[in-house]
């Protein structure tokens, strides 16, 4: 008897996560019924997903969440942000607690398959780097043999770190902590020689958390590819399409020179490509199951990719990040929209 109850209790605990969503319809139906999108974002990473003192969320990932809300409801406010730690993010998406994950998440094969995610186009091409105190006099990651490295748990960062030191036959001593605040505290207190995460995250941490940003240098080596992309769970292709093409719309708009300020002028454009994007020639919206004005609304309220980038992480922000790989393909970057037709 006791055993049976124990087994039942264990089973309840195990399946709570999954059973919640078992009876809900596909994601899109649930969102429409609810009236707002639940978006999983970072608990606090400057430039990507960060709440200010008044509780307003800002950042590149956050702006894409708002863009999805605009595309679907025509209203950037129809969104609820759920801050998630690196470890919480996948169970939260799998179980239906959030509809879309826009939380600087690296697109990898296993996440795309066995974790059960579908990745939208990359919104930020990143790579993992190292930050060290200037006083150590280290100029290359190759000099880091024997160093103590602070790293957040539950990220690809942890794996890249192990791979890099293995490949270069160097020893290291990881200090793995769950909360990003505690990792920051441990590094800036001097518990570790090195802090490693995505280069954008290093820039953000140095700008926002370091007592004196000039005391820390980011080493030149980038040891991994970190394509950060929004993700949805398997099982609702229409919702996946909406997320995917909303990202493409911001890139396409930048390519065509359409910004939030001049978008109205383009409504009278002669370019059929632009007219299809902005819904003047009908068809694209209907194909996605959205209002024909969806892309117009996104560009008008949120802006094109370049505007989102410059506003949150560009050279005029504390993060001071150049466009680099994130420039348009026509400018030597990797941002490339599939055709709108």
């Amino acid at each position: 008897m006791k055993k049976g109850l124990l087994a039942a209790a264990a089973a309840v605990a195990l399946s709570v996560a999954a059973s919640g969503a078992a009876h809900a319809g596909p994601t899109l139906d649930a969102i429409k019924k609810r009236g707002f999108i639940q978006c999983g974002v970072n608990t606090g990473l400057a430039g990507f997903g960060n709440p200010d003192s008044a509780g307003n969320w800002t950042g590149l990932d956050v702006d894409f969440c708002r863009a999805f809300a605009v595309a679907l409801f025509g209203d950037a406010g129809k969104i609820k942000f759920t801050p998630l730690s690196a470890q919480q993010r996948f169970p939260a998406l799998q179980s239906g607690e959030v509809d879309v994950l826009s939380r600087n998440t690296t697109w990898t094969l296993t996440r795309d398959t066995s974790v059960g995610l579908n990745f939208a186009p990359v919104t930020y091409y990143d790579g993992q780097g190292f930050m060290v105190p200037k006083s150590l006099g280290v100029t290359s990651a190759k000099d880091l043999g024997g160093a103590t490295v602070c790293v957040q748990s539950g990220t690809t960062t942890e794996l890249n770190l192990a791979d890099y030191f293995r490949a270069n036959n160097l020893q290291y001593n990881p200090v793995v902590i769950e909360s990003v605040d505690e990792v920051n505290a441990a590094y800036f207190a001097g518990r570790c020689d090195v802090y490693t995460t995505d280069a954008s995250g290093l820039a953000g941490t140095r700008a926002a958390v370091a007592p004196n940003p000039d005391d820390h240098v980011i080493l030149p080596e980038v040891i991994s590819k970190e394509p950060l992309a929004p993700a949805v769970r398997h099982g609702d292709d229409q919702w996946f399409d909406i997320v995917k093409w909303t990202v493409y719309a911001t890139v396409q708009a930048e390519e065509k020179g359409i910004t939030s300020k001049n978008v109205d002028e383009f409504l009278a454009s002669k370019d059929p490509d632009v007219l299809r994007l902005l819904g003047v020639s009908a068809g694209m919206g209907a194909a996605l199951g959205l209002d024909e004005k969806w892309a117009y609304n996104v560009i008008k309220t949120i802006g094109n990719y370049g505007e989102i980038y410059e506003r949150n992480v560009g050279v005029n922000t504390p993060l001071k990040l150049e466009r680099g790989l994130n420039a348009l393909w026509s400018n030597g970057g990797l941002m490339y929209s599939m055709p709108f037709r």
Binding site: G4, A7, A8, A11, V12, L14, S15, A18, S19, A21, A22, Q94, T113, S114, V115, G116, R233, H234, G235
Partner: peptide, 18 residues
Amino acid sequence: VGWFLISNTLDNLARRSI
């Protein structure tokens, strides 16, 4: 109840190809 929870979980996981 145990059978329901376990089969429900497995079913959900399979449907999301986890």
